[in-house]
């Protein structure tokens, strides 16, 4: 599903590459934690998958496509197959829960009948029944993140990228967020989650890829956060 082949990414005016000779595979339906300290290259990895950045060297395949050969005007079609969740939620403050989720479908031109059908389904999936008409500022952080996850998942992407989704949320609420991610993963969606949260990684027992200074230092199935290799 995601295939990195010897990928190096150097940002302009920076000596050390953000990612260096990274080679890894993420299979369809996998749940992968991306761990490592700040600046280890987790966000660069996610941006490369979205083709927000181009690799300096190496090849990247996402959902069976070679990103180097993907023309700019086809990038939107790639992004429709990838859902994204961020630490800061990125909801539209002037739209309700329902409208925020529907927005993601409206802007890719889905018919209204379809939107009316799938948005309530996905609101139920993330556990926000009865809150469809709330505004983002009336929701707790955990609830806002559920809205963001619903928006990322509503178009049934093949891959869900989560960049520290529990970074702004207390540990008790984080468990609920992880349950939703797990539920999404069980529908067959590949989930890649960058995180600092050791407790979550340890409790989930999924594949762990650890980055340090842009290099993969550990790739372990059913791993934990801080374990030495």
């Amino acid at each position: 599903m995601i295939h990195f082949d010897n990928v190096t990414k150097t940002y302009p005016n920076q000596g050390r590459p953000a990612l260096e000779n990274v080679t890894l595979d993420v299979e369809k339906g996998e749940f992968v934690f991306l761990v490592g300290p700040s600046g280890s290259g987790k966000s660069t990895f996610l941006r490369l998958v979205l083709k927000e950045e181009r690799p300096s060297e190496g090849r990247i395949h996402v959902a069976g496509r070679d990103l180097a050969r993907l023309t700019n005007w086809k990038v939107p079609h790639l992004r429709r197959r990838i859902g994204c969740v961020f630490q800061d939620f990125r909801l539209l403050p002037n739209k309700s829960v329902y409208q925020n989720i529907a927005f993601a479908l409206e802007v890719i031109g889905k018919p209204r009948r379809f939107i009316r059908k799938v948005v309530p389904e996905v609101i139920d999936l993330v556990g926000l029944e009865g809150k469809r008409d709330r505004m983002p500022d009336e929701l707790s952080g955990g609830e806002q993140q559920r809205v963001a996850m619903a928006r990322a998942f509503v178009n049934r992407p093949m891959i869900l990228l989560a960049d520290e989704p529990t970074g702004n949320i207390d540990p008790a609420t984080s468990i609920g967020i992880m349950k939703v991610l797990d539920r999404i993963n069980r529908t067959g969606t590949t989930v890649v989650m960058a995180t600092h949260d050791a407790a979550i990684v340890d409790s989930m027992r999924k594949r762990v890829i650890e980055l340090e200074y842009g290099k993969v230092v550990r790739d372990q199935s059913r791993g934990v956060y801080g374990q030495a290799y």
């Binding site: 990125r90 539209l92 403050p93």
Partner: peptide, 17 residues
């Protein structure tokens, strides 16, 4: 800019943005 960044993120075509 918020709307636009989300539109790009969820794969709205350039034309639509």
């Amino acid at each position: 800019r918020r709307e636009t960044s989300i539109m790009r993120l969820v794969g709205a075509s350039n034309f639509y943005v």
